[in-house]
Amino acid sequence: MSGSGGSSLTLTEGAVLGLLVRRPRHGFALAREFTPGSRIGRVLTVRRPLVYRALNALEGRGLVVSGEPESTPLGPSRSPKQVTAAGREAFDGWLATPVRHVRDVRLELLLKLALLDDLGRSMRPLLEAQRRALAPVHEALTDSGPAGSGFDALLGIWRTETTSAVMRFLDEAIRRHCDRPSELG
């Protein structure tokens, strides 16, 4: 599954890179970041084997490298993973790309916003880019109104209302969370 922002990173790969940009760590520690009660896990829950699969894929593409093995009293030695320059570039591109579909806001956009916040980066550029990306869809839906009858009409109402709610969310997020002095840089 590719990210919807035109990147070759999956959601899990993007999240793993973001967590590694913050600081190198081994797979087991990364997997804990995706548990339901964790900050990232509240948006995207991923089972440990899938975190390791993402790490292996990233390493295979040269976006992540293994550091020196560290011994631990809890089990076998572990090698912390680090992001390469190519990995950082791929992550930054993925992070800055708005989602293409309203349905991707719940997972991908919120994940990107959480990672931006974790990294101490401004959310404003992504929120504004996301608003620009979805504005034509919103305008087309609100201008035409729901068409058809029966289920088609209900689906049209769903799409219009969902898109309107996302646009209100983006407006409020820009207004409320990006007008802080720390966000204006």
Rank of each mutant, 00 (worst) to 15 (best):
L20V: 02
H26A: 10
V21M: 06
G93R: 07
T97L: 14
S2G: 10
L116Y: 04
S8A: 13
S7Q: 08
A133C: 14
L141D: 04
R42Q: 15
V65R: 03
G5I: 03
V166F: 02
L115T: 05
E161M: 04
A57Q: 12
R61V: 02
G93S: 06
V43G: 04
D92N: 11
G18T: 05
R47H: 11
P181H: 00
Y52A: 10
H101M: 07
A129K: 01
W94D: 06
L134D: 07
N56L: 11
V43D: 05
V51T: 03
T12P: 09
R124K: 14
P36W: 00
P80W: 02
A133M: 15
A15T: 05
L113Y: 02
R106P: 12
P80D: 04
G18D: 03
T45I: 13
L58S: 10
S71V: 06
A85K: 12
T12C: 09
A15H: 03
V166W: 01
E161N: 05
R61H: 08
G156P: 00
E161H: 03
V16C: 08
L107P: 00
L184R: 14
R53C: 10
G60N: 01
S66G: 11
V166I: 03
T162W: 08
L134Q: 07
S8N: 11
S2Q: 13
L17F: 00
A96M: 02
L11P: 11
E59Y: 08
A85G: 08
A57D: 14
E70K: 13
L109D: 15
L141V: 02
E139S: 14
S122F: 09
A31L: 10
G37L: 10
F34A: 02
N56T: 14
G148E: 15
P125C: 04
I157P: 09
V137G: 04
A140N: 13
S182Y: 11
E33W: 05
F34H: 03
G148P: 12
R121D: 12
R61S: 07
Q130W: 06
I40V: 10
E183K: 03
G60W: 01
L55I: 08
V102E: 05
F169E: 15
G148R: 12
T142I: 04
E13C: 11
H177A: 12
S122D: 09
D143H: 15
Q82M: 09
P146W: 01
L126F: 02
T163L: 08
L58H: 11
H26C: 09
Y52K: 10
V102T: 06
F34Q: 00
D171H: 07
D118F: 09
L141E: 01
R39K: 12
R168G: 14
I174T: 04
R100W: 10
A85N: 08
A57S: 14
G148Y: 10
W158T: 15
D179P: 08
P73N: 04
F34Y: 03
I157T: 14
N56E: 15
H101V: 06
F28V: 15
M1C: 09
E13N: 11
R25H: 10
S2M: 13
V46I: 00
D104R: 09
R42W: 10
E59D: 10
G14A: 03
L155A: 07
A135F: 14
G150D: 01
T84V: 03
